[in-house]
Amino acid sequence: MEPIIAIALALIGYALGSAKLITQGNEALVERLGKYHRTLKPGLNFIVPLVDQIVVEDTLKEQFTDIKPQNVITKDTIYLEVDAILYWRIRDIEKSFYAIDDLEGALVQLATTTLREIIAQHTVEETNLSRADMDKAILDQLNETTTSWGVDILRLDIQRITPPESVRKSMEEERAAEIKKRALISEAEGERQAAIKKAEGTKTSMQIIAEALRSHPESRDILRYLVAQDYVQASQKLGESNNAKIVFVDPANSTEMFQELIAESVNQESPNKNGGNGAG
């Protein structure tokens, strides 16, 4: 019985030593006598004890690496502090283990160097405005190298671009000046539109009054009364102002001047209407 027990125990030990469970999302590399033999997939796998050895088990899930703040110089020779996050994933675990030593450290160094190269091709203003374009350019350049490492760079997100204090102050002043400029332009445009509307309203009022006087000459006395009333109201408003300078104008003269303007409007409209009647 003892030899049988010994054999059974040996078989159990061999089974336990040869069985390897790989979790979902991971893969493992097996070397046989110091040389790559095969890749273990998720699930239950068996190897030959003492001959086969698992040298690495790694995840194929998406990973991220923080790129610490780096001092970079722009095209217009301004020093910036830039930090980013690199997202990547192992595509081929064999290449990632045998093609590069210290994969994550290599990715950090490569991303940092590429980030500096891309930013050096842009000015400070371009760096702030075209951040998405820079991310894509960095991503394309990184994947050209990391493909041979069995790694896919998924994206690189630039978190912060911090210019020197003097540059930040200058940019803030420039933005404030631009906002003030737009406000002044909007105000001037509003005043222009208001002046146009007022002129159009005055013109329409003159036309209506001229037509009324032409059709009903007896309404001239009413018009004189309205002009005098407006004159009195305007004088009262001027008197209420502390800084106002009151200039007295003869209402009779102002009425005559107003009548002359109306007469001109009537004369301008009459030929048009008479010509229209003659054509009819």
Rank of each mutant, 00 (worst) to 15 (best):
T114C: 06
T77S: 11
G105V: 09
Y98P: 00
T113R: 10
K95M: 05
L110E: 09
K95W: 01
Y79L: 07
Q109T: 12
T113W: 13
Y87A: 07
A111Y: 02
H122K: 15
V108D: 06
E125S: 15
I90S: 06
T113M: 15
Y98N: 03
R89C: 06
E94Q: 12
Y79Q: 09
Y98V: 01
I85W: 06
L103W: 02
E117K: 12
I90A: 03
W88H: 05
Y79R: 03
I78D: 00
I90G: 01
L115S: 03
E125C: 10
L115H: 04
E117P: 04
I119V: 14
R116N: 14
R89F: 15
G105M: 10
V82A: 00
R116D: 14
I78Y: 14
I93P: 02
A99R: 08
L107S: 04
D83C: 05
I119R: 01
R89S: 04
E125R: 11
E104P: 15
T112V: 12
D92I: 00
E117A: 13
T113N: 11
Q121P: 05
A106P: 05
K95L: 03
I119E: 02
Y79D: 09
H122A: 13
K95Y: 04
S96A: 15
W88A: 02
I85M: 14
L110F: 07
T112D: 15
T113P: 07
E81G: 00
R116K: 12
A84W: 00
W88M: 06
I90V: 14
F97A: 10
V82K: 00
L86H: 02
L80V: 01
T114M: 06
T77Y: 13
I78R: 07
I119M: 05
I93V: 14
A111Q: 08
L80A: 01
I100D: 02
A106D: 08
S96Q: 04
Y79K: 10
T77D: 15
T112Q: 12
D101Q: 15
A106Y: 06
R89L: 05
